[in-house]
Amino acid sequence: MIGIVVVSHSRALAEAAVALAEQMVPQESRPQLAVAAGAADGSFGTDASAVAAAIEQVDSPDGVLVLLDLGSAVMSAEMATEFLDPAMAEHVRLSGAPLVEGLVVALVTASTGATLDKVESEARNALQAKGKAVG
C-alpha cells in the first residue's frame, strides 16, 4: 500500500483535512499518512526538511503520494525530494490534486491497495464529482 503525505501552510488545515478524509476509511485499512504543515513556531509556512521527514516516515516500496495546498508548498516539496535518498525519491510523486477533495479520494483509493499511478490519477480527477454535483 502506498504512503500519503499532506503538505500545508497550516497545521490546523492539514489536520482537519486528514480527519475529514479518515472518516471514509476504517482505521485498520488506512494507508500510512504523515503531515508536514506550518512553520516551526506555529505560523503559516512549509518546511522542506519537515516534508522530507514525513516522506521518510511513510515510505513504502509501493510509493508515496504527496498532496499539497498552494504556492510555496510545491517548492518545499520539490526541494524535499532532493534531500531524500535518490532511490526513495524515485517513487515519490507530487500531486496536482486539490488538497481536500484529492486527499479524500487518495485515501479511499490507496486503502484498496491501488498502485501509485492509479491513486494519483484518481486524486487528480477528484474535483469532477463536485463539478457535476453543482451542475
Binding site: H9, A39, A40, S43, F44, G45, T46, D47, A48, S49, A50, G71, S72, M75, S76, E78, M79
Partner: peptide, 18 residues
C-alpha cells in the same frame, strides 16, 4: 541555507535556502 528552509515559512525559504 537549511536554517532558512526550516524557519522562513514562505516561498523565500526554499528560494534563499536553495
Amino acid at each position: 541555507g537549511m536554517t532558512l528552509v526550516s524557519n522562513v515559512g514562505g516561498a523565500s525559504g526554499p528560494l534563499y535556502g536553495t
